[in-house]
Design a protein around this nucleic acid. Sequence first.
DNA 1: ACATTTTTTTAGGCAAGCCTAAAAAAATTT
DNA 2: AAATTTTTTTAGGCTTGCCTAAAAAAATGT
Lengths: 219, 219
Amino acid sequence: MYSYTEENYLKTIYKLSEQGNQSINTNSIAEVLQTKAASVTDMIKKLADKKLLNYEKYKGVALTEKGRKVAVDTVRKHRLWECFLYDKLKFGWDEVHEIAEQLEHINSELLTDKLEEFLDFPTHDPHGDPIPTKNGVIKKSNFILLCDAKPNQILVMSGVADHTAVFLQHLNKISVVLGTEIQITEKNDYDGSIAVKLSGIKSMYFSKDVAKNILVKVK
Amino acid sequence: MYSYTEENYLKTIYKLSEQGNQSINTNSIAEVLQTKAASVTDMIKKLADKKLLNYEKYKGVALTEKGRKVAVDTVRKHRLWECFLYDKLKFGWDEVHEIAEQLEHINSELLTDKLEEFLDFPTHDPHGDPIPTKNGVIKKSNFILLCDAKPNQILVMSGVADHTAVFLQHLNKISVVLGTEIQITEKNDYDGSIAVKLSGIKSMYFSKDVAKNILVKVK
DNA sequence: ACATTTTTTTAGGCAAGCCTAAAAAAATTT
DNA sequence: AAATTTTTTTAGGCTTGCCTAAAAAAATGT
Ligand SMILES: [Mn+2]
Ligand SMILES: [Mn+2]
Ligand SMILES: [Mn+2]
Ligand SMILES: [Mn+2]
C-alpha cells in the first residue's frame, strides 16, 4: 500500500506530534530521518497529494486521520515485532529496535493479527511503550519520570524516555529492568542525582541523566 | 547489503539453474520475475559488475560462488520464515509463501540464527523443501514423483512439485498433507491417472496432473 | 524599520529499477 | 545459403527518493 519510505515519514511526523509539537516543521523531520530539508519538502508534497497530511507552504505539516492511521499501524507492527524478538527469540531490549525497523514494513494484516495472538495480546513492548490496537487506539501511559517522583514511595520501573542502545545497556549494567522496584531514599538538588533502593535491598546512586530517562509508576 | 530487487534476481537465477539449465537466459528470468527482458539486461549488467554472476552478451548468465551464497541465504531465510508462519502462527501451507517473499529480505544474520534455533533447527519447510544451512549447504532431497513410483509400496508424501496456492488447497481438499501414507493400487497408462489408498484405508483416484506434482519417498 | 540569520522551498540533477520501441545478433526455416 | 523469426541488447524515457546550490520567506536582532 505505502512504501517503506512513506511509512517512515508518517511514523516520524506522528512521533513528533506526540511530543507536543502541534505543527511539525521541515527541519525536525529531516533531523530524525537523517536526510535533508529539501528531500523532506519533496516527500511532504507527495504525502499531501495522497491526503495523508495537511501541508501549507512554510507552515509545517499535520497528519490527517488517514495518515495517523498508517503511522499508528506502523508503530503497532514495530512494537509487536519487538515483543516477538524479545520474548520469543530472546534478544536483548537494546537489540530489538533496529530489526523491528525493518519488520514494521511487512505488509500483511493477517500476519500482524496472528502475531499479536501468538504473543498473547501484549499491551506493552519491551521498552514499556504501549501497543496500539488494531483499530488504532493507543493507551496513553501515565508513567512519570523517576527524577520527578516523590521519595519513599515504592515505584515500579515501567519504561524509558531514552531508547538508545547505550542507555538500555547501561540499565542492564545497573540491574534496572521493567518491573524493578525502586524507592527514592534521597534527592540531591545540587546535581539532580538521587539515592535509591532497588527491590528493597540494593542501595545505589543514579545521576540526573539516568533518573530523568527512567519512567516509573507508583506501586 | 543487497537490495530487495537484487536478492530476487539472484534467487530466481539460482532456482532456474537448479532446474537443470546450465546457463540462464534473459527471457526465462523476465518470465519468472514478471518483468521485461530489457529490464533483466539492465540488472544483470549491474550484478555482473558486482561479481555476483558471470555474463557474456547474448550468452546468458551463471552465478558466481558469491552470487550463489546470497541466493541460497535468501532461500534459507524464506524457508525458515515459512516454518515460523506455519508451525507457530498456524498459517496454511498455501498462505505462507507470499508473506515469506517479504520476510526473506530482512537483513540480520543474528535474527536468522535465532529464528532457526527457536524453530528447533527444521530441516524442511512446510512444502517439504530442504532448508540450507548457515554455510550454504543444501541437502538434495531424493524424493520421486508419485506418478513415477511403483505400485503397492508404502510411500510417504514428502513434498510438492507445484507450489501454487490452488494446488496446495486442492491437496487440503483431498486430505493429502506432508507425511500422509500413499499406496498406489493401480496405474492407468491411458490417461496417467492412478488409484491410491491413503493411510492404508481411504481409496481415491488421482489424475495425472495431481500425481505428477506430488513428491514421495518410499517408507 | 531595516539588516541579518535561519528556515523552507525551488531548481536542477543523480541512481535504482522499471518501461517501450528500435536495432542487432542468434536461431530457425525454407 | 538466404530469408524469416525469435531472442537479446540498446536507446531513450519515466518514477521514486535522494542530493546540492540558489532563491524566497520567515524569524530575529538592533
Ligand atoms: Mn523501537
Ligand atoms: Mn520499543
Ligand atoms: Mn515459498
Ligand atoms: Mn516453501
